[in-house]
C-alpha cells in the first residue's frame, strides 16, 4: 500500500509538471484528489492493517495528498502567470501613434495683449474702465479740448451718425466720462481698452476699426516724471527688461506737454534697421500731462490737480511683439493665424 501511494504521488507530480493548461490541471486535481480517485481507492485496504500501522499509513496518504495539492497549486500559479503574460503580450500597443487630441481654442492676440496690459496696471492700482463705442461729439472731441472747427479734428476723420453722434475715434471719451463721475475728486487711476473707428481704407497698416488702450491718472501732485516712470515700468514688462525708452515732445490737443514714447529697437539693438527705419527707436505710444481745459471741463480744479494720460494701439504692439506684418490679419480671423497665439511664452 505504501508503495502504491508513493507510486501515485510520483505519477501525479509527473502529470502536473507536464500539464499544459488550467483545464488539464483541474482534470488532474479531480482524478487524483477526488473522492473516487486512486488514493481513496488505495486506502480501501486500510482495514487490513494493524492498529499500529494504520495511523502511519493515514499520515502517509495525507502527505501524498498534500504534496499533490501543493504541486497543483504551484503549477496553477505558474500557469496563471503565464496566461497573464501572454495576454499582456497580446495587448502591446504602438505608443508612437498620435494621442487623441483635446479640443481647445485660444484667445485672440489682441485680447492677449489687452489683458496683459490690464493686469500689469491692475497690479499698480488701476481699475479697468469701459465706455460706449458710439459717442457724443462732446465726449469724443469737445471735452478733450477739441472744439468744433479745431484743425486737429482733421487728424481723425470720423464716422458720424448724426452731427452730434459718431463712432468714437479713440478711447479718450472714457477718460472724460470717468473724470466726470469722480466729480472733481481724485485720485483717478484707470486703464481703458476698447474698439475705435476712423475713416481709413483698410490696408496693411490701416484699419477702419482697431483697438486702443489708454491710461489716466489724476491726483494732486502728479508729475511728468511719474509718467516717465510709469511708462518705463510698462515698456520693460511688455517688451523686456533690456529695453530703453525715450520721450519725444509731440502734440495732442488733450495733453500739454505732450510726448511720444519710443523704445529701443530689439531687432538691431539700436543700431538702425528696416523695422525702426534706421533710427534705432520704435514709436509705441502717445502720452502727456492732462490739459488743464480737459481737467476743468470734467470738473477738476486744474490749479490743484494734475494728471497724466497715455494711449496706445494693441495692434501695433502685437505687430511689434510677434512680428505680424499686416493689421488685417487681426480682423480676418484666419484660424492659421489665431492658432499661433495659444502658446504661453
Amino acid at each position: 500500500m505504501q508503495e502504491r501511494l508513493k507510486e501515485l504521488q510520483t505519477e501525479a507530480l509527473e502529470k502536473i509538471s507536464t500539464a499544459a493548461d488550467l483545464k488539464e490541471l483541474n482534470d488532474i486535481r479531480v482524478s487524483y484528489l477526488g473522492k473516487k480517485g486512486p488514493i481513496t481507492e488505495a486506502l480501501k485496504g486500510m482495514g487490513k492493517l494493524s492498529a499500529e500501522e494504520r495511523p502511519k499509513m493515514g499520515a502517509l496518504a495525507n502527505e501524498v495528498r498534500d504534496s499533490i495539492a501543493a504541486g497543483i497549486e504551484e503549477k496553477q500559479k505558474h500557469l496563471e502567470e503565464a496566461a497573464v503574460q501572454e495576454k499582456l503580450a497580446a495587448e502591446k500597443i504602438d505608443v508612437t501613434l498620435p494621442g487623441r487630441p483635446v479640443k481647445t481654442g485660444n484667445h485672440h492676440p489682441l485680447t492677449r495683449i489687452i489683458e496683459e496690459i490690464e493686469d500689469l496696471f491692475i497690479g499698480m492700482g488701476y481699475t479697468v474702465a469701459e465706455g460706449p463705442e458710439v459717442e457724443k461729439d462732446y465726449y469724443n472731441f469737445e471735452a478733450l479740448n477739441l472744439p468744433k472747427g479745431h484743425p486737429a479734428r482733421d487728424m481723425q476723420d470720423s464716422f458720424y451718425i448724426t452731427e452730434e453722434i459718431l463712432l468714437r475715434t479713440h478711447t479718450s471719451p472714457v477718460q472724460a466720462r470717468t473724470m466726470e463721475k469722480h466729480e472733481g475728486k481724485g485720485p483717478v487711476k484707470i486703464i481703458c481698452p476698447g474698439k475705435v473707428y476712423r475713416r481709413d481704407n483698410d490696408d496693411a497698416t490701416h484699419s477702419h476699426q482697431f483697438m486702443q488702450i489708454e491710461g489716466l491718472v489724476v491726483d494732486e501732485n502728479i508729475r511728468m516724471t511719474d509718467l516717465k516712470g510709469t511708462l518705463e515700468v510698462f515698456a520693460k514688462k511688455m517688451f523686456g527688461e533690456d529695453r530703453e525708452i525715450r520721450l519725444r515732445p509731440s502734440f495732442f490737443p488733450f495733453t500739454e506737454p505732450s510726448v511720444e514714447m519710443d523704445i529701443s529697437c530689439k531687432i538691431c539693438g539700436g543700431k538702425g534697421c528696416s523695422v525702426c527705419k534706421g533710427t534705432g527707436w520704435i514709436e509705441i505710444l502717445g502720452a502727456g500731462m492732462v490739459h488743464p481745459n480737459v481737467l476743468e471741463m470734467a470738473g477738476f480744479d486744474s490749479k490743484k490737480y494734475t494728471g497724466f494720460a497715455f494711449g496706445m494701439g494693441p495692434e501695433r504692439i502685437a505687430m511689434l511683439k510677434y512680428g505680424v506684418d499686416d493689421i488685417r490679419h487681426f480682423y480676418t480671423n484666419d484660424v492659421r493665424f489665431l492658432k499661433q497665439f495659444s502658446i504661453h511664452e
Partner: peptide, 28 residues
Amino acid sequence: IEEVGRLYGYDNLKSTLPVGASTPGHLT
C-alpha cells in the same frame, strides 16, 4: 512748461511713480 520741458530735454527727467493715496486695482 512744455517749451521748458522739451528744450531742457525729456531725457534729463528722472523716473518716478505717482505717490499719494493708494488705490486697489481690480476688475469689476
